[in-house]
Amino acid sequence: MSFVEYGDIIKDGDTAIVFLGHDSMFPVKVQHGSVTQTKYGVIRHSTDLIGKKYGSKVTCSKGGWVFILHPTPELWTMNLPHRTQILYSTDISIITMMLELKPGSIVCESGTGSGSLSHALIRTVAPTGHLYTVEFHQQRAEKAREEFREHGVEHLVTVTNQDVCKNGFGVSNIADAVFLDIPSPWEAIGHAKSALKAEGGRICSFSPCIEQVQRTCLAMEEYGFTEINTLEILLRVYNVRTISLQIPDLGKAAEDNSSTVFDSSNPSNQGSLCTNLQQGTVQFKSGVPLREMVGHTGYLTFATKS
């Protein structure tokens, strides 16, 4: 396995994702002789995992079972150990597309944080691109390096431990794109500009507060960035449910009642509706929003250097 290449068989040293049920999974480092406890029982790595195919169903000691999945940046994002607040796949998707990243792109990022975005960036720019990521917190930088090594992507990333606002990215005129997720991005815009290629490139800054965005936009304008655009993206997830609604008793005769309901509800939506005459209910499938409230992650400000 590697985060940048699919493998079929689980091997010693791999990072695999144990899938217990919807939204319930965790990463595991596969090692000979090692065991993992789950609520369905014990998984013995040597016999249960190594040599099996990714995507297999593994039966645990208590008779329960789990699926073992090949790691992807998205699964990693859902399961990684948090050292900081992280970016989720919804924001990552739009960042990747708006920064125009593709194999071969050179990207600068700061800060590295928990490495959620880093893994996605590496995936996209591999095999010929490179990620230069700057983290001013020494312990986090060290931990990120270790993870990249474990995940078989260390050749695609350089982690630098310094303050991006003071010392920049440690590279100049080589980047196709720059991403900033720091408290004061406006202090790093100058460094971002010098990190970008002379012929131009794209920049993105992620900030939770509008005041930060305000100052960032002013700084971008000052440094001659064009196409400045701020947006926000929200994810809505739906639960698929079969809902049944009761037919009200309006005092009509039984036969009459059922036929009118049937007629009025069916022509438009024949397949998905079904009337249960005995119980006096109408059943249908619905996508029900998971939560009532959509959260706010941050504003994304994009711009072009040309």
Partner: peptide, 23 residues
């Protein structure tokens, strides 16, 4: 198949100008 997810995204663009920032 596992981890089935039905989703939709909303996109909101902002005007960011001094004292005139709004969606």
């Amino acid at each position: 198949v596992i981890n089935l997810k039905l989703s939709e995204t909303w996109l909101r663009n902002y005007q960011v100008l001094p004292d005139r920032s709004h969606p």
